[in-house]
Design a protein around this nucleic acid. Sequence first.
DNA 1: CAAATAGTGTCTCTAAGACAATATCAC
DNA 2: GTGATATTGTCTTAGAGACACTATTTG
Lengths: 270, 270
Amino acid sequence: MASSEETFLSEYRLEDYDRPSVAADIALFTIRSEEENSYRHEPENHLSLLLIQRGEHPFQGAWALPGGFMRADETIEACAYREITTETNVTPSALMSVGVFSEPDRDPRGRIISNAFLSIIGEENVQAAGGDDAADARWFKVQFEEGVERSILTLKETDITIEAVLRKKHSRFGRTEYEILESGGLAFDHAKMIAAALALLRQNAKDFELIFDFLPERFTLTELQKVQETIMNISVLPANFRRKIAGYVTETDEYTKGAGHRPAKLFRRK
Amino acid sequence: MASSEETFLSEYRLEDYDRPSVAADIALFTIRSEEENSYRHEPENHLSLLLIQRGEHPFQGAWALPGGFMRADETIEACAYREITTETNVTPSALMSVGVFSEPDRDPRGRIISNAFLSIIGEENVQAAGGDDAADARWFKVQFEEGVERSILTLKETDITIEAVLRKKHSRFGRTEYEILESGGLAFDHAKMIAAALALLRQNAKDFELIFDFLPERFTLTELQKVQETIMNISVLPANFRRKIAGYVTETDEYTKGAGHRPAKLFRRK
DNA sequence: CAAATAGTGTCTCTAAGACAATATCAC
DNA sequence: GTGATATTGTCTTAGAGACACTATTTG
């Protein structure tokens, strides 16, 4: 009972307790422009999510979020950074915890709990290639229509369409939790993770918390506005957007040019 | 390579990977009144946190958040509920994730990652008693002074005073993370968890997300206002508080009585 | 100049904060 | 009535949303 701490620790066996495997999965978003880009007309943007096609069982051939197991010498955040860097060769600036997914039966391989993260890279860094355990990696165009009873998550790539159906369970403390009605072929409970990540993304885009991460260091206010509009699926008046964002940016003395219309001043994040 | 999923799963060995132990720790808060309660004068409130004194190594004798290891058949949230219920015999309504603490060296027993939760019970349910592995359990009065360079967390019980010093590392996406400068004798990294929980509590008290959980079903608006003021360490004008809270409550036809002054209408959460 | 985007000025409405005034109980 | 708390009214100010207008580039 009153043994010394050294004795206690040397006799202690962690193996006596159940131990799950612990993983991190990352919902990596970027914003890409539509291809067109015809003269004098600014391109449309859309939100994109990186998915990899699983090369192994379980869910072989299904699309999943990139991720992997936490190592003995790293934190779960470091694990998420490492995984996303090996998958994409890009180190994202934002890394935001979405939540822990720990249903006992969420993985057929056994007890694996996963920490979901949300991450963002700028369009200029999109060069994601498939990693070790991934047959293929692709950017999917994201649509997320939220309803009271059903929310529809649609992910589109050239010839692939994934449609998952979810139901909002609750939304407290800024985090929204979903239940999967149809996974649309997404592996594990990743549909849930993606929906939760999107809800979080929209929540935080509202007060400019992370919209800057989608753009390069210098940007125009219109570009910034489009990022917010794309994420939140809304549209706001330029005059009002400018007023609200004013405190968050610093102007530079550079301008865009050659666009067939009035040049725009470039700004930097404050 | 193209083996069947059954074959794959039957040959799969999770034991080949590093597996940490996974725990949940809970910062359980309540609001208690000062003892006085002299005639015609409403009592002052203060925020209290439940700590248990560790009966075992490591950190034997130190104060810690209640918590325990996740079992094989439960989610991490279920684990937090179970632990808090066994410790206190009360099932709290709010259970809010504070974050994952996964520094490799955070526990001398070995690799243990912990999910911190924030939870609340009403004053009328405070009857916490020590559990199995706890020598003692006590409610500590909470003071948290936030500064830019240093934040001071003070926990007081009759003859015990714990003072921890922390530094705010960053505050993004509504979650604030702290670094421990002095743990003040708190076990493990629990000072960090408590600070993060308090920051979250204040954040969410602002828009009435969880202040109701501190009170019984029927309450007066003044009681509700005092809860918010106690948590956030601010004071607001009654007229303004009433206007803001109006949409969140429903009035009943009951009143308080015998208080030596004008009776107050009782309200219910909407 | 026409088309397209950049940027400014200002009106209205709502909500927050401050403050003053009135209401109702126990003693 | 007095002391204490409950409750309402309203003035001012800050910010969001709507809308109209001006500015500057390329072809």
